[in-house]
């Protein structure tokens, strides 16, 4: 039995990737949940909004790299991120003005808005593919690792290495900053409070003189910032490919629903629940078990519950379980 090595192996293959992935999902789910809370529909275009924000950032990053701007050991994309956020804000405000506003004034049923968001998804998807193409794009630069597996081994003398990629560290730091800023905004500022009031009870909020169009505009602006950040972080950590963002829609929705739609705290919790389940269920536990169990009990197979190709199935099954037993989510979301 070798507890330390087991712990390091576990952190390296499960904890660190899951925390990074969970932060990305949480940022995505926050956007979905805010739109749901304020505008009251499930936004199917969210994945492609993330892709758009990431795309703008990628383009600006390339431009910065070409004229020699760099951010030292950190990826240049962080410098380009504000431009990505601005681009996404412009896009979302434009779609709201041209598309969603009409249905809001009509007081259309939520499901109509969902279908409309599907049309927006088509357009954004087409736009991203049109501008940057459907292929994989690399835009990460700077130091690759905060600590690499080999350094860790020489440092500690353990058999297992622990590698933390720069992108993983950045993901967590940026996500924490975003979440703190968001909660400060929602709980402390006047606009944030009016947003929460509008989400809780629309009629009451209107009666007390809250301007709905202002609330909606701020929602889109925040969602744009969250979506672009989530998109860039995911792209830095994995790689940028338009179709992948569309596929992220499922785990993001699962996170938002598991946490309770419309509840920001729930979205964060949901993101980590989904990320940890995906990673633990698709991880081959043999390596950890090797250190923890006596030799006679060592598993002969990989001890992997499901192959990694089924990671979507994991988020889906968790979604189903929550829907069956607690339809409003772990944290109390909007009622059915």
């Amino acid at each position: 039995m070798d507890f330390l090595n087991a712990l390091v192996a576990l952190s390296n293959f499960v904890l660190v990737p899951a925390i990074a992935y969970g932060s990305q999902l949480a940022l995505g789910a926050l956007g979905v949940t805010l739109i749901y809370g304020i505008l009251r529909f499930s936004n199917f275009a969210h994945g492609d909004t993330m892709a758009f924000g990431a795309m703008v950032t990628v383009l600006v990053t390339w431009w910065m790299q070409s004229i020699g701007i760099s951010f030292g050991p950190l990826p240049t994309a962080l410098l380009a991120l504000p431009f990505g956020i601005l681009g996404t804000m412009a896009l979302l405000l434009f779609t709201d003005r041209v598309v969603y506003k009409f249905y809001r004034e009509q007081k259309a049923k939520p499901v109509i808005l969902v279908i409309v968001s599907m049309g927006v998804m088509f357009i954004m998807n087409g736009l991203v593919r049109f501008i940057i193409g459907p292929g994989d794009q690399r835009f990460a630069d700077g130091e690759r690792f905060i600590i690499s597996a080999r350094d860790f081994k020489t440092m500690t003398g353990l058999k297992e290495g622990l590698a933390i990629k720069t992108t993983q560290g950045i993901t967590v730091v940026v996500a924490v900053i975003c979440v703190i800023a968001l909660f400060w905004f929602l709980n402390r500022t006047r606009t944030g409070k009016s947003m929460r009031a509008y989400s809780d009870n629309e009629d009451l909020a209107l009666l007390s003189g809250i301007n709905p169009e202002r609330v909606v505009m701020y929602t889109w602006l925040i969602v744009a910032a969250l979506a672009a950040t989530a998109g860039v972080l995911y792209g830095l950590d994995k790689s940028f490919k338009p179709f992948v963002y569309f596929q992220l829609l499922l785990p993001i929705f699962a996170s938002a629903i598991v946490g309770g739609l419309g509840n920001p705290l729930g979205a964060i919790a949901g993101g980590f629940v989904i990320a940890f389940s995906e990673v633990t269920i698709t991880y081959a536990w043999k390596k950890v078990a090797k250190y923890m169990l006596p030799e006679s009990l060592e598993p002969s197979s990989l001890a992997q519950l499901l192959s990694t190709d089924y990671k979507f199935a994991v988020s889906f099954v968790i979604l189903l379980i929550v829907l069956l037993f607690k339809p409003t989510g772990l944290f109390k979301g909007k009622a059915v």
Binding site: F41, P110, V111
Partner: peptide
């Protein structure tokens, strides 16, 4: 209704 949409997507 949104839940059916997400479940079928999954």
């Amino acid at each position: 209704s949104d839940y059916l949409a997400i479940a079928t997507l999954g």
